[in-house]
């Protein structure tokens, strides 16, 4: 089953005509993702790569194509509005790839979403991949910017705040022959739509996911909350890695959310909380796959 997205999930891309959005829309099409529509205000009526119709509004695109999931490739200044447009249209899932959205905008977006039917992944994230059965895992659903070919259809659920660290974990589990059920990048911003915990709950209920790799980093307390829940409720083996053990306090380490402030959110405290919850903590980023394999 995998989680969140399946090979037949119909996907819409907001910002499909921008350079970045177009490049990744093309790669997703090649991967086999059902990209059914694009949205760029003012460019309705055009067609992307002679197969994907472009609409002016998400509402119209949804009604015409039945898209259920939207990927946001809109520049930061307009991304908050683009997410709200998708919420208003009633998308099941919104995956915000955009990096650099003002925190105040995300705060308003999350508040506006309230108990709407939509789930937001990201922003500032690599997206979601549910690998397929084809060569180099093609035939699956790739939303975002992750390289498709490093995946392999399998049993490990991967959840992470970081893009390239996700690729490390994916590649390691591919080389070990385990493969992945679904890989979710939840993003490196301090305010994001979906937490580690939300994804753990989905993995726990997904029959295809047999084990989990959770990748976190310094800052906040999302990893600790996920661990506390997992200790009581998750019966699948979990391996984890926390990046930022050597990060100096008070400095923003690339990701806006990766900052140790007031002595909170340190890597050592997070690792301790994970171990306490019975999660196997990988000491280095090159042992995420093997740490998981050891407890299977």
């Amino acid at each position: 089953m995998a989680i969140l997205v399946q090979p037949d999930t119909k996907v819409l891309i907001q910002g499909i005509t921008g350079g970045f959005g177009a490049a990744h829309a093309q790669l997703s099409l090649e991967y086999g993702t059902q990209i059914v529509a694009g949205v760029t205000p003012g460019k309705g009526g055009q067609v992307f790569e002679s197969k994907v119709p472009i609409f002016d509004t998400v509402d119209e695109a949804m009604k015409e194509t039945g898209a259920k999931v939207s990927a946001i490739f809109v520049p930061p200044a307009f991304a908050g509005d683009a997410i709200m447009e998708s919420v208003d249209a009633g998308m099941d899932l919104i995956v915000a790839i955009t990096e650099g959205i003002p925190v105040a905008d995300m705060m308003r977006v999350c508040s506006m979403m309230g108990d709407s039917r939509s789930r937001l992944i990201g922003p500032n994230c690599p997206g979601i991949v549910t690998p397929g059965n084809g060569p180099e895992s093609s035939g699956g659903c790739r939303i975002g910017i992750a390289p498709g070919y490093i995946h392999k259809k399998g049993s490990v659920g991967v959840v992470s705040r970081s893009g390239t660290l996700t690729y490390e974990a994916v590649w390691q589990t591919t080389l070990l022959g385990l493969g992945q059920s679904t890989c979710v990048g939840i993003g490196g911003d301090p305010i994001n739509g979906t937490s580690h915990l939300d994804i753990l709950k989905l993995f726990n209920e997904d029959p295809e996911t047999e084990s989990i790799i959770m990748i976190g980093e310094i800052g906040g307390s999302a990893e600790e909350e996920a661990a506390a829940w997992a200790k009581e409720n998750c019966d699948k083996p979990i391996a984890a890695f926390i990046a930022g053990a050597t990060a100096p306090p008070g400095r923003r380490m690339g990701h806006a959310g990766a900052i140790i402030s007031g002595g909170k959110g340190t890597a050592s405290a997070k690792k301790e909380a994970l171990r306490e919850a019975g999660i196997a903590v990988s000491e280095t980023p090159s042992e995420m796959g093997s740490t998981l394999a050891n407890i299977l």
Partner: peptide, 26 residues
Amino acid sequence: VNGAGLAMATMDIIKHFGGEPANFLD
């Protein structure tokens, strides 16, 4: 390094093998 998470993790693994990172660079 490319990517903030991997850049942090690279600093960590240098330390793990007994070295000291001179910088974070994504």
